[in-house]
C-alpha cells in the first residue's frame, strides 16, 4: 500500500470512529443528564437544603477528586502525543501516571463514601443521601469501565505506535476526558452549589 492511500485509510477510519464515539458519548451524556435532572428536581423542590437537618458534605474530598481527574486527563493527552510520535519511555510514564491517578480517584471516592457514613449519611436515609450515593456510584462504575478500557492499551507500551490502534487510543481518551467533564459538572452542581 502506498503512503497516500495509507494516510487516506487512517483518516477514513478516524472519521468513522469520531462519528461512532460522538453518538456513544451523547448516549452517556443523556444518562448523566437525566440523573442530574433528578438531582436538580429534588434540590429545587425541597424548601431547605440539605433537608431533614442533614449536614452538607464537606468540599475537601470532592475537590481533591476533581483535581486528580483533571490532571489525569492532561497526562492522558501527553500519553496520546507520545504515542503518535512513538516515544516508548514517555508513553509508559504518562500511561502509568494516568492509570495511577485513575486509581487514586477511586480511592478518594471510597474515602468520600466512608466519610459520608461517618457523618451519619446512610444510603437508606432519605432522598438526600440516596442522591449523593447513587450518582457517585454510577459515575464510579463508569470510571472502573474506563480503567478497564485503559488496560486494552497496555500492549502499546511494549509495541509502540501502530496505525491500526490510533482509534483505540483516541476512543479511550475521549471516554476518559468525558468522565472527567461529567465529574466536574457533578462537582459544581452537587457539591459546590
Amino acid at each position: 500500500m502506498n503512503k497516500a492511500l495509507e494516510a487516506n485509510q487512517i483518516q477514513g477510519k478516524q472519521a468513522v470512529h469520531a462519528v461512532g464515539m460522538t453518538v456513544l458519548l451523547v448516549s452517556f451524556a443523556m444518562l448523566f443528564a437525566t440523573l442530574l435532572l433528578g438531582y436538580i428536581v429534588f434540590r429545587l423542590t425541597t424548601d431547605t437544603w440539605p433537608p431533614q437537618g442533614l449536614a452538607r458534605i464537606p468540599l475537601t474530598l470532592p475537590t481533591i477528586s476533581t483535581l486528580i481527574i483533571g490532571v489525569s486527563s492532561v497526562f492522558f493527552m501527553n500519553f496520546e502525543k507520545a504515542f503518535m510520535t512513538n516515544q516508548l519511555g514517555k508513553m509508559r510514564a504518562f500511561f502509568g501516571l494516568t492509570m495511577g491517578l485513575g486509581l487514586g480517584f477511586m480511592l478518594v471516592q471510597l474515602e468520600l463514601w466512608n466519610s459520608m457514613k461517618e457523618m451519619g449519611l446512610w444510603v437508606s436515609g432519605g432522598a438526600y443521601p440516596s442522591l449523593f450515593y447513587s450518582l457517585t456510584w454510577i459515575h464510579a462504575a463508569h470510571i472502573v469501565m474506563a480503567l478497564v478500557s485503559l488496560l486494552f492499551l497496555v500492549p502499546r507500551l511494549f509495541e509502540g505506535y501502530d496505525m491500526d490502534r490510533i482509534t483505540w487510543v483516541q476512543n479511550v481518551g475521549k471516554f476518559w476526558h468525558f468522565l472527567g467533564l461529567v465529574w466536574f459538572v457533578m462537582y459544581i452542581v452537587m457539591f459546590v452549589y
Binding site: V23, L24, S27, M30, L31, T34, L35, G38
Partner: peptide
C-alpha cells in the same frame, strides 16, 4: 434510541 434509551436507563 441513542438519545433517549439512556434516560430510561437512568430511571
Amino acid at each position: 434510541n441513542a438519545i433517549f434509551l439512556p434516560v430510561l436507563g437512568a430511571g
